[in-house]
């Protein structure tokens, strides 16, 4: 399963344990070096889609300072998906970074 960058970083943000909405958004931004900035509405859509795909699960709900927070955790399938994507990206990066043989020129 290929993951979009936003989905990849959302899943990656949950690797260390359950997080609530804003914490996921902040962690994804941190992990991506500021490339992935998710609003609450966008995150809602992404988490809804990933929950349907079985990649994340709702963990619990808490009210903190009068604000309702819903925590999410990675499912086993989500963990496998983010690991596979990491391997795929690493393999793709290796192709670019390792020394490459000279290109084959066709004899005309």
């Amino acid at each position: 399963m290929h993951l979009r960058p936003a989905s990849y970083f959302v899943l990656a943000s949950l690797l260390d344990g359950p997080l609530h909405g804003y914490a996921i958004s902040a962690r994804a931004e941190q992990l991506s070096g500021g490339d992935v900035r998710l609003t609450a509405g966008t995150l809602y859509g992404a988490l809804e889609r990933m929950a349907r795909q079985g990649l994340v699960q709702m963990d619990r709900e808490e009210t903190v300072d009068g604000r309702l927070r819903r925590y999410y955790r990675l499912s086993d399938q989500g963990r496998d998906a983010v690991m596979s994507e990491a391997d795929r990206l690493a393999a793709a990066a290796r192709v670019v970074k390792r020394p490459r043989p000279a290109p084959i020129r066709s004899a005309v």
Partner: peptide, 25 residues
Amino acid sequence: VVRDCARDAVDARGPRALARESLAI
């Protein structure tokens, strides 16, 4: 839940995030 998440974001990122977060909600 989405509204409160957006409020957390506006508190952390400042007033410039308000319009973006509201539109996204």
